Amino acid sequence: MHEMSVALSVVDQVEQAARPGGARGVRRVTVEIGELAGVVPDALAFCFELACAGTLLEGAELVTRSVPGRAACAPCGRAWDTGMPPDMICAGCRGGATGLLSGRDLRITEVHWSALPTAPDPTPVPRHQEN
């Protein structure tokens, strides 16, 4: 199942983003999944939980948002939802010269960190003065 490789990639990318900022954990990751991407959201959620074990993301929630497949006809300019399985024939001119506008997406759109390091106190620390 390729959902495991997708989950491992998401965990890796989020961990790489967390290091420079000093994040100590992740509460939630939101991923957009295109209708035509071939990724099953429930299978991804299962794999994500396994992939997070022992990482900065352990216990993080995965939120998935579906992106509909959309196509456009080059000759007449009409756009439509492709559905699944995708309908790539233009209903306006019955032409087959179409381009895919969306639906193959697979993108991390949000990460909610559970804790960030606190900024140092800007108040100077008084030095001990000798008399």
Rank of each mutant, 00 (worst) to 15 (best):
E35V: 03
L36R: 02
V14G: 04
A18E: 09
L101H: 03
R70G: 07
D12R: 15
D81L: 10
Q16L: 15
A43C: 13
L56M: 08
C76F: 05
S9L: 11
P126M: 10
L101Y: 06
G83P: 06
G92C: 05
A37I: 02
R104Y: 06
I108N: 07
A43T: 06
A51P: 05
V67Q: 06
P75T: 02
A17K: 11
P20N: 10
E49C: 01
L62E: 01
A74C: 03
D121N: 15
L44W: 00
L101N: 02
R27A: 12
C73I: 01
E130M: 11
H128D: 14
D12V: 11
A97F: 12
G54H: 10
T30Q: 03
L56T: 03
V40D: 02
E15R: 11
M4V: 04
I89H: 05
T55V: 00
E15S: 08
D105G: 09
T118V: 14
T55Q: 03
S5R: 12
P126L: 11
S114G: 12
L8M: 15
A18S: 11
A60N: 05
V63A: 12
G92E: 10
G77W: 00
G69W: 08
P117K: 08
R104D: 07
H112E: 13
E3T: 08
R78P: 03
G96L: 00
W80I: 07
A23K: 08
A71W: 02
V125T: 15
R27E: 12
T82S: 04
R127K: 14
L57K: 05
E32N: 09
D12T: 09
C90W: 04
A51R: 02
A23L: 11
T123E: 14
A91F: 11
I33S: 04
G99P: 00
L116F: 12
H128I: 15
C52T: 04
E61A: 15
L50T: 00
V111A: 14
A37H: 03
L100E: 01
V31D: 03
